[in-house]
């Protein structure tokens, strides 16, 4: 069984967030990290390999600059066997559809039985990549999986929807995005972290995948960002570090605000 996991490198949440005033793009310099939501997809794949499909081969797939290889290694350490990394300057500035086109081209080439994604990207809070990729690949798609069972060439997924919980079934090959409640990802042991670099890494260009560069990147983006503005805030936020008196300070605040009497 061949499992692919689409991952994304995102700015570390601890780094300062800013958008470049010249290009209106998110500035991705500084510390980057593997999208935390993707770790749940990797854990789900590892559990499939430990359980119903011991022969599973797990491939980490990403689109991003060459420097994203650190996050690829982080994903491999957690449980990937090999990686496919599409690094091409012409891919920079891709919008959701552009990124989906590149991922779909890479995924098509790999003939995967199961394609997993995290539920969203932590930087853009985008939650539509699974739906975009599945449609481009013309594959069945299930999002927000709270559990995945694999048996007889089909996945059975429990997922939360507005009216409760649905259980759905789809034959493989299919695309599944997993909820962050599906599992508690394990931290990789040191030897796995050390060994990640030695796993097979494939670095590809758009041309390698036969992707027309004019359909992706900034040039092919279907959406434009024409300007930025400040939303109305809630007003002042008081944030304190607990030194033992936080509960007292909170009660004083609530009394002052007349929220409690």
């Amino acid at each position: 069984m061949r499992i692919a996991i689409c991952v994304k490198e995102v700015p570390d949440p601890t780094a300062e967030k800013r958008i470049d005033a010249g290009t209106n793009r998110l500035v991705r310099s500084g510390e980057n990290t593997l999208n935390p939501y993707d770790r749940h997809a990797i854990e789900a794949a590892v559990q499939i390999k430990e359980g119903p499909a011991p022969d599973a081969e797990i491939t980490i797939v990403t689109v991003g600059p060459e420097s994203a290889n650190r996050s690829v290694d982080r994903a491999l350490a957690q449980g990937g066997d090999q990686s496919v990394h599409i690094a091409d300057e012409a891919a920079a500035g891709s919008d959701l559809l552009g990124t989906a086109r590149i991922l779909a081209a890479a995924l098509k080439r790999g003939n995967y039985d199961l394609i997993l994604l995290g539920q969203q990207a932590a930087d853009s809070e985008s939650y539509v990549m699974a739906g975009l990729v599945a449609e481009l690949l013309e594959l069945p798609c299930v999002t927000q999986a709270a559990s995945i069972e694999l048996a007889d060439g089909a996945v059975t997924v429990k997922r939360q929807v507005e009216t409760g919980y649905d259980t759905v079934k789809a034959a493989t090959p299919c695309v599944v995005s997993v909820s962050d409640a599906i599992n508690d990802p394990r931290y990789p042991p040191l030897p796995a972290i050390m060994g990640a670099k030695r796993k097979p890494h494939e670095v590809l260009s758009l041309a390698d995948l036969g992707v027309d560069a004019s359909t992706v990147g900034a040039a092919g983006a279907g959406t434009t960002v024409g300007g930025l503005s400040k939303p109305e805030g809630r007003g002042d936020t008081i944030v304190i570090e607990d030194d033992g008196s936080a509960a007292d300070q909170l009660v004083a605040f609530l009394l002052e605000k007349k929220v409690v009497a």
């Binding site: 959701l96 539509v128 699974a130 739906g131 929807v161 507005e162």
Partner: peptide
């Protein structure tokens, strides 16, 4: 909603439309 977001993602991909 979960359904509408998934449906619009699929439609955008099908039509080659920006989303």
């Amino acid at each position: 909603s979960i359904m509408s977001a998934d449906a619009m993602a699929g439609l955008a991909a099908r039509l080659g439309a920006g989303i």
